[in-house]
Design a protein around this nucleic acid. Structure first.
Lengths: 237, 237
DNA sequence: ACCTCCGTGCCATTTCACGGCACACCGTGC
DNA sequence: GCACGGTGTGCCGTGAAATGGCACGGAGGT
């Protein structure tokens, strides 16, 4: 089913570059124009894309993807948002909700701080398990070893032994933290939301600019995020 | 490209019924098992679905759909959420953000009230243009006539002439309202967010149980939602 | 007038999707 | 033990349909 693969590639490219036309897509994907156009027509017929604005030769994705996406983690999101709001109110900082997927954690919801200097990550972004607060919070309850530990900054944990020790501390403490390990100027604390079987299904975090996170605040936010995650763990059980 | 169509149908069905296996999907879609399985394999290869939990024979969608979905209305959503939050704070009621698409408006974001009796609509839901506050707010700036006006409740406007008069009032007033026209026990007020060319690109609403919306509140919420939509119209211009 | 880019449409070639069928597996019931 | 209904998987001949090169009409730009 090669054509399905190419059609989905076209869909992704449309979503990334919309509004966009046949020729540019073909160039970006390295495919013949005819193939791309057939894919576009088919995606249109299936209701996943539509002509953008007045012009009929440029395309953009419809809400079909949203309908598909939101049915997945919907229960989790609905349960989490009120808790996230309270957490933001108490901390005044940006709150993220992420879920593990493959070798990464994926951002599925966020509430931003109202402070002028803030972390802004796009929904759907994937962060490494070993170099993010959410990733480490999840990893601590996953019982899985990672093959590679690439460095992103000076403080990224790249030694498997050191990572194991860190995860042990996370389990004892209840929350994971991040001291500029993915981006040097971002700090965070995170705690995992566990399913009935003890497996991590998601993670909550409080993220701030590194310059704003003092040690006292780190401990305080850590307690708060652990409480919030615990609330969700229980409400899902 | 029939196979693309069927693969996308399979994807939608997986998202609606996940976690789900080959056989049940084939029955639901009326397709041969082999066809469904080929689609599943292909979708898996493309990274849109993954085995659910421990079992390798049940499937669920990945965050791919979220990544595609969220790049679409992302700028709008990011701009709208803070305004929506303020609006909820002022009204204490559920706030919806919807965009026009085809013959309907689609819910792309919501903030819920904390009151125990509340409206809860799923993200991605489609509401009729002529029988919802958001729909009428959009329709008032769309300059398009509808072919059919199906009735949902006793109060649904089914007469084209009456609808035109209503839309004229909406334009004069700045906001549209809904008096149980889609569901008898839901009331709302909504105001359109306009693009630089005056075309409606989205709509904000305040939704409450019909029992809670007095005439005074309707007018008050109407003013607030109109102000909020105006703020967004300007910030996008 | 030229040149270049756009989107669209055609069509012979050949790939590969289709779907019937058989198989392995696993509980249940008799 | 054996048949039965239910999974998910794998094979394969047939034939539909995806492919992609190419040509055409049009819109700007120089």
């Amino acid at each position: 089913m090669q054509n399905v693969i190419t059609a989905l590639r076209v869909l992704e490219e449309v979503s990334a570059r919309q509004p966009i036309g046949v020729g540019e897509l073909a160039r970006l994907l390295g495919l013949p124009k005819s193939t791309v156009q057939r894919s576009l027509r088919t995606l249109h017929e299936a209701g996943w894309i539509r002509p953008a604005g007045g012009e009929v030769t440029r395309w953009q994705v419809t809400s079909k993807a949203l309908q598909v996406a939101r049915r997945t983690e919907l229960g989790l999101r609905d349960a989490a948002v009120p808790v996230m709001e309270e957490l933001r109110q108490r901390t005044g900082e940006t709150i993220h909700l992420m879920v593990p997927e493959g070798e990464a954690v994926v951002l599925i919801e966020r509430l931003e701080t109202d402070k002028p200097l803030r972390i802004v990550l796009p929904l759907g972004i994937r962060l490494p398990l070993h170099a993010s607060a959410n990733g480490k919070a999840v990893l601590a309850h996953l019982g899985r070893a990672l093959d590679e530990l690439p460095a992103y900054t000076d403080t990224t944990i790249t030694d498997a032994r050191a990572l194991r020790a860190e995860l042990e501390a996370v389990r004892a403490r209840g929350y994971a933290d991040n001291r500029g390990e993915w981006r040097a100027d971002i700090a965070a604390v995170a705690s995992a939301i566990l399913g009935p079987d003890g497996a991590p299904i998601a993670s909550l975090s409080v993220s701030t600019p590194a310059s704003r996170m003092t040690e006292d605040q780190r401990a305080q936010y850590g307690e708060l995020v652990t409480q919030a995650a615990g609330t969700l763990t229980e409400s899902l059980g």
